[in-house]
Structures are given as structure tokens and as C-alpha cells.
């Protein structure tokens, strides 16, 4: 089945700033891959996986105990821009 893809919308959802040429290229490749992937539809509806874990594990929790946090300087060392203990970014666009 041919798959329709609004590649611009998908790239926006994925926060990828791609050129029109790049978008066109990816759109074509996605089309081919999705045609192959669409074979999953040949399976007539089986029960949905209740629990993907092969050992069927459930109820894995932590007790409410405080553990040491990271050293801020070590964290900030890998940050592109910081100011007195904060990470810094340009203005967040309104409504974003």
C-alpha cells in the first residue's frame, strides 16, 4: 500500500530543522521502508501485548529514600551555556 506522509509535519514534531531537499529524500526512503513495514497489517488482529517483559515482571518500585545528587560543577561542565548555576537558553517562544 502506498503511504502518504506529511514529512514537514513529522520533522516539526521531531524538532528537526531539515532543508526541503533533505525532507524530500527522507520522504522517499520512509515511503519504501513503510511499504515493507506495512506487512505487519497482514497479521489478522492478535491479542495486544499485555506486558512486553519476557519475564512478565510487574510492580517494581523504589522506597521513598533520598540518595545523593550530582555535583553541580560536574554537571555544568558539559553544558553549552550556563550562568550562576542555571542552564541558559534563548527566549522560549510564547505558546511553545
Amino acid at each position: 500500500m502506498p503511504v502518504e506522509i506529511d514529512i514537514g509535519h513529522v520533522a516539526r514534531l521531531a524538532r528537526l530543522d531539515l532543508s526541503d531537499d533533505e525532507l524530500e529524500g527522507y520522504k522517499n526512503q520512509l515511503g519504501l521502508i513503510l511499504e515493507h513495514a506495512a506487512r505487519v497489517q497482514s497479521l489478522d488482529a492478535e491479542p495486544q501485548v499485555e506486558n512486553a517483559h519476557p519475564l512478565g515482571l510487574f510492580n517494581i518500585f523504589r522506597d521513598d529514600v533520598v540518595l545523593p545528587s550530582l555535583d553541580r560543577d560536574e554537571v555544568m561542565a558539559s553544558a553549552p551555556e550556563t550562568a550562576d548555576g542555571y542552564f541558559v537558553v534563548p527566549p522560549v517562544m510564547e505558546g511553545e
Binding site: 550562568a83 542555571y86 542552564f87 541558559v88 537558553v89 534563548p90 527566549p91 517562544m93 510564547e94
Partner: peptide
């Protein structure tokens, strides 16, 4: 918000 020059996190 939209008038901010930068944002501290």
C-alpha cells in the same frame, strides 16, 4: 514570556 531575552533553567 515572549519578551524575554534569555531563559534560565
Amino acid at each position: 514570556i515572549h519578551a524575554a531575552e534569555s531563559t534560565l533553567l
